[in-house]
């Protein structure tokens, strides 16, 4: 396998749920790829489908009413529709996952060490004591103080930040090529978040893993990601390199998102550029562009569904003319100041 091939290619991924009120789409035609050693940030608010996208990659959507279609290829191998046994050979070994809430992500009745050992021994034929020794090393690598004793502790005996470190240590135990992190710092305090983000960045360098980092916090993305996807109502509405996307966002939703975050330095705006209204309910998705009802620049073309387009790897799903976007963005900010 050539090493420059993308690690993960997601194409036209759709996740929907059958409910009493009909089929509800959660993810509608998401496509993206992740290169080796790349950190991809996925940004979106609740209901944007970002978590469902991640769960679908690893086949972790467990609802009998879920329908997942499209394609997820990992190192050229199709993951969707894979048998459980074949999937288990990849889960935890080549693709590992970190979840949002470290308080509930670990089984409360087993020690940290037992849970890491379990994962190592599921994928490699090593002795219990060798696996345990590696657990201690891993806990040490993620910065858990006194790892020799922490390995025998139960999850509730550790603080939130320490638990998240233990979860990360477990995820790294088989040296995965891809680490999927779903809001790994949302439940943590800022100073702990800073520690964990630093850790994730360091691990990419040390272990060479690619990372998909899902977050609602643009600041977190700016901190660690190489490339960013912005999701809204189950679709990717903008995609680009971190620098491009943070300096010159192209989609009006991204503009609103940036305007909603109070700045940490410089003058304080009198008002924030909030986005009016609230995200659409999945069961009542508007026709055409899903952001249309909240968009200041809505026009006739928006009755159709825009597709991702653009140049230089910076693409957005919007009908506004490319060359006037930054001017429009400034008018939006100016309107609030006035």
């Amino acid at each position: 396998m050539p090493t420059d091939a993308p690690l993960l290619v997601v194409e036209n991924l759709c996740v929907s749920f059958r409910t009493e009120g009909g089929v509800v789409p959660a993810v509608s035609g998401v496509s993206f790829s992740v290169e080796q050693r790349e950190i991809v940030g996925v940004v979106g608010e609740s209901g944007s489908g970002k978590s469902q996208t991640l769960l679908a990659i690893l086949g972790l959507i467990n609802s009998p009413n879920a329908v997942v279609t499209g394609s997820v290829r990992f190192l050229g191998k199709e993951l969707l529709g894979l048998k459980r046994r074949a999937l288990d050979a990849i889960r935890g070994r080549q693709i590992a996952m970190i979840f949002q809430d470290p308080m509930t992500a670990l089984t409360p009745v087993h020690t940290i060490g037992d849970q890491i050992v379990e994962q190592i021994r599921a994928h490699e034929s090593v002795s219990r004591s060798a696996a345990r020794k590696r657990s201690v090393e891993l806990l040490d690598a993620v910065g858990l103080p006194s790892p020799e004793s922490a390995v025998d502790r139960y999850p509730h005996q550790l603080s939130g930040g320490m638990r998240q470190r233990a979860v990360i240590a477990m995820a790294l135990s088989c040296n995965p090529a891809l680490l999927i992190a779903d809001e790994p710092t949302t439940a943590l305090d800022v100073t702990v978040q800073a520690q964990i983000l630093e850790l994730i960045g360091r691990l990419r360098d040390a272990f060479g893993s690619a990372v998909i980092l899902v977050t609602h916090d643009l600041g977190v993305v700016a901190e660690v990601a190489d490339r960013v996807l912005v999701m809204y109502a189950g679709r990717v509405v903008e995609e680009g390199g971190k620098g491009q996307l943070l300096r010159e966002p192209l989609h009006p939703y991204a503009w609103g998102l940036f305007g909603s975050i109070p700045p940490m330095h410089g003058p304080r705006p009198a008002r924030l550029t909030a986005i009016p209204g609230s995200p659409p309910k999945l069961s009542q998705m508007p026709h055409g562009c899903a952001f249309g009802p909240r968009c200041t620049f809505r026009h006739e073309a928006c009755a159709a569904q825009p597709s991702l387009g653009g140049t230089g790897g910076h693409r957005s799903a919007c009908f506004l003319p490319q060359d006037s976007r930054q001017d429009l963005r400034r008018t939006l900010a100016g309107r609030v100041e006035a």
Binding site: D88, G92, E118
Partner: peptide, 9 residues
């Protein structure tokens, strides 16, 4: 979900 993501069957 964490346990399933570990690939342990």
């Amino acid at each position: 979900r964490t346990a399933r993501a570990k690939g342990i069957g």
